[in-house]
Amino acid sequence: MKNYVKLVDFELKRFIKIYFVLIGMTIVLQIVGVILESRQYLDKATEAMYEYSVPLMEFVGQNGKFGLHRVLETGYFMIPIGLSVAALIFYCFFIWYRDWFGKNTFVYRLLMLPTARLNVLLAKASAIFLMVLGLVGIQLILLPIESTILQWIVPLDLRIDMSVSELVGQFGYGYLGLIIPNSFIQFLINYGIGFMHVFILFTAILFERSFRLRGIVYGVIYYIAAQVLFLFPIMIEVFFETGYLYPIEIFILEIILGLLVIGLSLWISNYLLNRKVTV
């Protein structure tokens, strides 16, 4: 356990610089976006009202009120979030391959640690989970702050104030609802599926690391097989439309299968790390 925590900390530190850059970029771009977009809206309103004497109500009727939801759709939000997602997905691979490739042969050290080798995998996975949740957590803290900044710039008559859950729930902007679901159960579902994929991917990578060229084939097969196993009840529904199982039963079955796939991935990974992996 102690070794696991130390390893998680170690894995975090190895990516922390890029991670901090991602966080910094997110914070700066989003806040700049809120300021610029708010100003732009306000300028438009001022122009309409003072130069063309458009009444406030009419302006609001034509342009709608301003709110954080409008900034959500712009590149100021989408680009940092997209880049962070891409960086973390890329790191899911790199977190393994960086130990094998390059001048160093750090994998020797990792595999020779006097601790279960599965801990190395769990630490890598945990580091990824922490970084994913950390970024989303920062986004959660950032949204009310951005909301406040918006309130400083745009007067009450021209804006809609929304809490984070209203922002997610009402406007249901695909990506925001995906990363910050309003319901805790949906949160567990989304991130459970996400983390399950990380475990499946790690097992596929270990297949490659164990059997090299042949391992790529094994890895791809495993990745597909795991997906099929997980989605089996849903695929049956889609292809055969039997409707035999009630939705709630499929839901429970999916939870069990998801846990099963995670368990299976860990078990195979453990076997590969102890018996098949090669430096």
Partner: peptide, 27 residues
């Protein structure tokens, strides 16, 4: 103190998600 990064990230996660979902549940 050496683990401050780990501790800070974990704290942010617990704090932000904790508040958000507790708030949602109580709202």
């Amino acid at each position: 103190l050496r683990y401050w990064k780990l501790i800070v990230i974990t704290a942010i996660i617990v704090f932000s998600f904790g508040t958000y979902y507790v708030q949602n549940a109580l709202a």
